[in-house]
Simulated assay, not measured.
Amino acid sequence: MQRARALTAATAAALLCALVGSCDLATDPSPDPSTTTAEPPSDPAPTEDEVEDADATEDPTETPPTPPAEEDLPGTALDGYPEAGTRLLIVGVEAQEILNLRLGPGIDFDSIARLPPDSPLTATGRNRDLGGSAGIWFQVRAGDDVGWVISRFVAEPGAVRDVTDRFDPPPTAETRGDMIDAVVQEWDQTGTATAIVVFGPIVVDESLQARVDVLAPGDDSVLGARLFLVADADDDGFTLTRVTATQLCARGVAGTGDCA
């Protein structure tokens, strides 16, 4: 079981999951700009029951009990964001891990599904604040399942922009991990962000692809950015050719595509 970690550890973990079957190839896995919510990374650290290794042997409840009634839910109901129908994506969960979808808000409820990082989610509009380290929970729909996830692991993507010009000259690296390190270090000039590899890195047709969530503390509306990088691969290593950045928003997206 693992949690989001600093860049060096995230890169090492990503190298171990390269070419894993769950990391499906995508021309550009950056989400559609209309997709959605999240808690800032400065929130209390997640408990061990929220994120698990994808290879964990314990299965979620096959026949979940009846969901609790509204009056039996813990915490306090929260009105407003995210509203029903808001599309959400999972952030800060490494490519080889899963996020638990629970029957109710809180880790005391059974896990009814194990969600890989690329699972699309839709908010139902029911949100609960459990207080303190228990955090805020959103009820979401994931395929045919409806359950609860802690808000710190979901975000609303804002604008998707080509930011390749920011990397001039294009960095080169001998290994996949070094290329990811170079891109994140150039993107995060402060050195305070946490980087989590959520896709890849994979090499197909002499092209390296990876997707990295770079989560920066200190802003209650912008959680960070999801970087999708492409690099040419040859016998000498890798040369960056393209980077797109998707804003990760904690409180919604304005008409411009920027975080509200």
Rank of each mutant, 00 (worst) to 15 (best):
D43W: 15
P201H: 03
A142S: 10
E186P: 00
R102D: 03
R141W: 03
E174G: 13
T27L: 13
P201W: 01
P64F: 00
N127W: 01
G132D: 07
V160Q: 02
V149Y: 07
T76N: 03
R176N: 07
A245L: 04
A155E: 09
L115N: 04
E39P: 06
V140H: 06
T192R: 12
G252V: 07
R87H: 12
L223W: 00
L16N: 08
G158F: 05
A14H: 06
L130H: 12
L73S: 04
L73D: 03
S119H: 12
N100S: 15
D205W: 02
S119K: 08
A84R: 08
G252I: 09
P105N: 06
D258I: 14
E94C: 12
E50K: 04
V154D: 08
G92E: 11
P60A: 03
A233H: 11
V146Q: 00
E94T: 14
A233R: 11
L208P: 05
F138R: 06
R226H: 00
T244W: 06
D220M: 12
G125R: 10
T172I: 02
V160A: 12
R87K: 12
R226F: 03
D258Q: 13
S119Y: 09
T256D: 14
A26C: 11
E58L: 11
E71N: 07
V93P: 06
A225E: 07
A210L: 10
F153W: 01
T35C: 09
S151F: 05
P29I: 03
R141H: 08
T27C: 04
T192N: 10
P116M: 07
V212L: 04
A123E: 00
S207V: 15
W187S: 14
C23W: 07
G257C: 09
V154H: 02
T172N: 11
D162T: 05
T175R: 02
L130K: 08
V204S: 12
A69P: 00
D43H: 06
D110K: 06
D162V: 10
S133K: 14
L78K: 03
L16Y: 06
E206P: 04
V203F: 10
E39G: 15
I136S: 06
E50H: 11
T8R: 09
R166E: 04
V140C: 05
P68Q: 01
R242W: 02
T76E: 13
E70S: 14
A77D: 11
P74K: 05
G75H: 01
D162W: 10
T66G: 01
D28C: 04
I112V: 11
T190S: 15
W148A: 10
R128S: 01
P169K: 05
T86G: 05
F167V: 06
P64N: 01
A216S: 12
A95T: 14
E94L: 13
E83G: 10
E94Q: 11
E186V: 11
V140L: 11
A45N: 12
F109Q: 07
